[in-house]
């Protein structure tokens, strides 16, 4: 019995010792923050950061849905998940007065259909998916549209994302529809068009689409803007082209879940991440585009002018952010399964 007590005390001691300290529970994508930034926050505020990671929106969503109280204080869902979580009351409205540094966020990234007025979310990192080409094999001047991927001369040379929404958004936009459509007739048409693309497709990859480009396995296809920037450090021939139908944009956003333990600390942490010097550090560490205009201006000339990472305003207007499609996702998935079993 006494031994049991000793064991109990030993187990509980660290918990008791740290219990007095303030803690903020952060739930973020893997490799999505500069560890130095966390340390800096802890030193400045004395608040301990309890950091956990996830590798997909779905995993994050499933976990947040299960936790009813005393959950995470800050999470980073993508656009369409912000919308979904907002509809299900899983995240709470933000008090902008507590985030003074929000003024540095790029206005052209705010007030998008997935979260009007940014009532619930503040964009953290963002980027595009557009057409990647290897200019050694494909003349970039000849490529202007998503429809160029269907050109028979690229048989077995095309890369598509391994992501149902990205692939369908591309096909939908190539026909002039919205990539966020919920109309099953349009989704079916997109599927029928994708069937014709299949002979051209060599690989589906959305984890690291630059690799098949760098390996000379494909010469044209979908790619993330940030991946082109990373590819260029090895090979300058990989280029990004914004199609005339518009690129597909994504953003990951800071939100406060409804089940947060400590909302006050969550605001402190979010405001800290919106500080330009901190945003710059994160952006340099992660390699994606920062949403922080001030931080962007502080970057070196090559990075901040790299069009693949920071598209100009015209491209921004032409493109579209992914938003939630609700129950239509079942239709998308049905056609995706059919496409993949052909």
């Amino acid at each position: 019995m006494r031994r049991l007590l000793v064991v109990l005390v030993l187990v509980l001691l660290p918990v008791l010792a740290f219990g007095a300290k303030q803690e903020v529970y952060v739930f973020n994508w893997t490799e999505y923050i500069d560890p130095g930034v966390i340390k800096q926050f802890e030193q400045e505020t004395g608040i301990k950061v309890r950091y956990s990671t996830y590798d997909s929106n779905e995993a994050m969503f499933a976990k947040l849905k299960l936790v009813k109280k005393a959950g995470y204080d800050v999470a980073f869902p993508s656009t369409y998940y912000v919308e979904r979580m907002r509809k299900l009351n899983l995240i709470q409205p933000l008090d902008k007065a507590k985030i003074p540094n929000m003024k540095h966020i790029n206005p052209s990234l705010l007030n998008k259909p997935y979260d009007p007025g940014n009532a619930y979310s503040i964009p953290y990192m963002w980027g595009s998916s557009a057409i990647g080409v290897n200019s050694k094999y494909v003349d970039p001047k000849g490529i202007t549209s998503w429809n160029d991927l269907w050109n028979p001369k690229y048989k077995g040379k095309v890369l598509l994302m391994d992501d149902v929404r990205e692939v369908f958004a591309m096909s939908l936009r190539s026909m002039g529809y919205s990539g966020n459509t919920t109309d099953s007739a349009q989704i079916r048409k997109a599927y029928e068009k994708l069937l014709k693309l299949r002979p051209n497709v060599k690989v589906f990859n959305s984890d690291s689409p630059r690799q098949p480009f760098l390996n000379n396995e494909v010469v044209i296809g979908q790619i993330w803007g940030g991946e082109v920037y990373q590819a260029n450090q090895e090979n300058r021939d990989i280029k990004l082209i914004y199609p005339k139908e518009g690129a597909i944009f994504w953003a990951d956003n800071m939100v406060i879940p409804g089940s947060a333990r400590n909302v006050g600390l969550a605001y402190k942490f979010i405001d800290f991440l919106c500080r330009p010097e901190v945003a710059k550090k994160n952006c340099e560490y992660i390699g994606y585009a920062t949403t922080n205009l001030k931080a962007q201006q502080m970057l070196d000339a090559r990075t901040k002018n790299h069009k693949a990472v920071y598209p100009d305003d015209a491209e921004m207007k032409r493109g579209e952010f992914q938003s939630d499609v609700g129950e239509a996702i079942m239709t998308y998935e049905k056609y995706w399964e059919m496409l993949k079993t052909q």
Partner: peptide, 24 residues
């Protein structure tokens, strides 16, 4: 997925998509 280019769907992919993509 890695060596075949993820061009076909296997049981494992199917199950994963049901849980994660469609929430089915």
């Amino acid at each position: 997925d890695f060596l075949g280019g993820a061009r076909s769907m296997l049981i494992g992919n199917f199950i994963k998509n049901q849980f994660l993509t469609t929430g089915n």
